[in-house]
Design a protein around this nucleic acid. Structure first.
Lengths: 106, 106
DNA sequence: AAGTTATGTGACCATCGGGTCACATGTCAA
DNA sequence: TTGACATGTGACCCGATGGTCACATAACTT
């Protein structure tokens, strides 16, 4: 299993993406903290976190018996750079901004 | 199945990522053209292209009996924007540049 | 020391997803 | 119009994946 395979497989599950969303809003949470936000047993959440960790999308720091989880944005950036070169990035960004402006009018 | 679910599921397979790589290098190829680059039957490739198309990662244009495939970078950009905000983007870009410099010395 | 809290492991089961094939439709060329 | 070419469909098999549970270790508390 290659590095990028791990990353994309990790991102393929909605629960794992939701975990990343949670960590994006606030870093450094423990397993039990994250478990509270999900309708799933602790074991399921732990399994998902392990997948994210092995993909390096989440990095951890042990603190006593607790394990703190942090979001690592680097692999995400690498996905971007794989299929969007510097030249087309300008166009795509403009397109996305336009899309957002149309979908979320103030 | 939500939009983003389709995108991430589509990206989860190495064959489909390779197809995107091919289209990133050169757009507007047909099924049989792409099939030649893969060690897989035409049916397998067609199935993968359909998944990419339904995820809007690939857009198509019919031309007679041929079907031309083009890469659409917009969903990729949206992934980026989901977990990398404007503020941290500077740091992450710097990190990635550094990583590339270290791994590919001239 | 004893109970409680936070996390880890391996097995198990149901479902999903990748790949192939037989068969079918539509389009171009002679 | 007849044959060759480009693509589409539905069924099938098998390995991979998501979720749960019984059981276990480690660390804080009183």
């Amino acid at each position: 299993m290659t590095d990028d395979d791990r990353v994309f497989k990790a991102l393929a599950d909605p629960t794992r993406r939701f975990l990343l969303d949670l960590l994006f809003r606030r870093d450094g949470r423990t397993l039990t903290e994250l478990e509270r936000e999900l309708e799933m047993t602790r074991f399921g959440v732990a399994k998902h976190l392990k997948v994210l960790e092995e993909a390096d999308l989440v990095v951890v720091r042990r603190q006593g018996r607790e394990k703190l989880h942090f979001l690592n944005p680097v692999p995400i950036r690498l996905i971007h750079d794989r299929w969007i070169d510097k030249y087309t990035e300008r166009h795509v960004t403009a397109l996305v901004d336009l899309k957002n402006a149309l979908e979320e009018p103030e």
